[in-house]
Design a protein around this nucleic acid. Structure first.
Lengths: 301, 301
DNA sequence: GTCAAGCGTTTGTCCTGACAAATGACGTCC
DNA sequence: GGACGTCATTTGTCAGGACAAACGCTTGAC
């Protein structure tokens, strides 16, 4: 499960909620110093910009061939951990793949597979004729397809749910189109008021195909919808989201403890499982001051 | 350049703007029929659920070895086109990799690389012991790090830009933290009013490190900021975004032709190049009815 | 009749080997 | 001194082979 969205924003105004860890001062125009991570076996005097004091540690790397964990994955995890812990500083050049493979007793394809997975995550950049370089650590995970409930919980806010509606009813035009069922056919409709620390945060309206999974009101008040779906054996695969804003209607405002006309953040989402079936259509509104979507985008070459 | 966000929403209300192509009716619980794309060379009588009338066409695939385009990429593009054009229906099983490689005169790793790139895009799902299956065609590209200008232009709206400010000034706390420069140091500040069809759509405030690239006002009125940055040789790598909503302030409202207190969609974004340098911090507000962020999320296994 | 074991299929992982292309630094020529 | 070509380095691409693991179906046993 990767790729997500929706991180809580505790602040009152949507200013700049990103939790920047210790804003590092980088003079403009300067590029992070280049240095090599691994000591090159005394080959040529070529390509050895071991600038920042020659190699603090050679960076311990090893793989366990008796483990059932794939070798490329073991290596990728170690490199990723090294980046996260700062043992591989941004800008550092990884030794070349051939040496690295030889050092670890692996083949080059295996090493490449490990590095490639990190490149895909945005942690490293490869340049032909140059090498593989560690990217600035600002990069976090791309984002995960997570639920509001999980987001609130991991943020330490005690999420609460009030189920306003939980019924089977004819699908409206929007929900029917999103779920790919005929308009007017019966679907499951759920409406919930989600709160954090007892204060309302969002109004969640969801429509699901009938018969996909049981949705007892008790369960809905205890946990999130995605968690229930995953527990029912549904493999979430992709989602299509649309995020906008609008003014609160009277009824919404009352539920969310806002005044009518207050700005609300809106999100419509259709989620698909790995067979391509639409398994959920959600139409959510969030209190503007209480919530913001935060996510990371990667540019793939 | 992949991974993006921000697609125009012409509609007045943030209803369900996704351009669903012909909402296909799929009875609940049904899984798309399984059929094979390629005729299996008359092997065993095993695994041949060529249900839907045995193979309309064997799907023409070929690679050109004289082309400088990598073989795996040629194959990937052909498969992708086949999926998009419906020649590879959702649920279709691709023939096994070995046969496919043999048929095309390629090696299995090359075929795997092609398929893997499509799996990464979310177009296909692999299952050991089963095969590679085409996912529901609902999936579009993951999203690209695009600019509002490009979005409007590709949507056929004639984007216009009015430069309200273009100056060098001391960085405020927010911009300084985002760009990683000391507070109060000089940065480039740009403020633009972006319109479509002559109507204002968004108010764009951007801060850039000094000396990164020249920003003539004339150029800014002609094209988008990202396009200028790319033209200046800057390789955009990742961005951190936060999307929220708030009420319009007086000054904003006047510029955007809204009334004070009207709901606005807000977006803060810090963009990094491939060396990890922050190259742009943007603080944008969009008219709620005129714009919505639309994007696709993929769940990576 | 039901459950477990067996078997073939298919992808997952890994290896060895090879050549091509881009990059950056050096040396040479003008 | 500056422009150019040359060269070593490094990643990109591709081939061919091998074994392991998961899956689905059939077969067999109870």
């Amino acid at each position: 499960m990767r790729h997500a969205v929706a991180k809580k924003d505790g602040g009152a105004l949507p200013g700049i909620p990103l939790g920047r860890a210790a804003p590092r001062v980088i003079p403009r125009g300067e590029r992070p110093g280049v240095r090599y991570a691994m000591a090159l076996s005394g080959q040529a005097n070529y390509a050895r910009p071991v600038t920042e004091r020659g190699n603090d540690q050679p960076l311990p790397l090893s793989v366990d061939r008796t483990s059932p964990v794939p070798l490329y994955f073991q290596l990728a995890r170690q490199l990723e951990a090294a980046v996260e812990q700062g043992r591989l500083a941004p800008g550092t050049l990884l030794g070349n793949e051939i040496d690295l493979a030889h050092r670890l007793g692996l083949s080059r394809p295996t090493v490449r597979q490990a590095i490639q997975s990190l490149v895909d995550k945005g942690l490293m950049v490869r340049r032909r004729g140059v090498g593989t370089q560690v990217v600035h650590s600002q990069v976090r995970r791309p984002l995960e397809l997570s639920s509001l409930y999980d987001d609130l919980e991991t943020a330490g806010q005690r999420p609460g749910t009030l189920v306003l509606r939980n019924a089977v009813e004819p699908a409206g035009a929007e929900a029917a189109a999103a779920l790919g069922v005929p308009e007017g056919s019966e679907v499951h409709a759920v409406e919930r008021l989600r709160s954090a620390h007892g204060e309302p945060v969002a109004l969640l309206r969801n429509h699901l195909p009938l018969g996909l999974l049981p949705l007892p009101t008790g369960e809905l008040e205890e946990t999130g919808l995605y968690r229930l779906m995953r527990a029912a054996g549904i493999t979430l695969h992709s989602a299509r989201q649309s995020v906008g804003a609008r003014a609160a209607a009277q009824a919404e405002a009352r539920l969310l403890e806002e005044h009518a006309g207050a700005p609300l953040l809106t999100m419509e989402r259709t989620t698909y499982d790995d067979t391509g079936r639409a398994v959920e259509f959600g139409s959510h509104v969030y209190r503007a001051g209480r919530y913001a979507f935060e996510f990371q985008l990667l540019v793939r070459p």
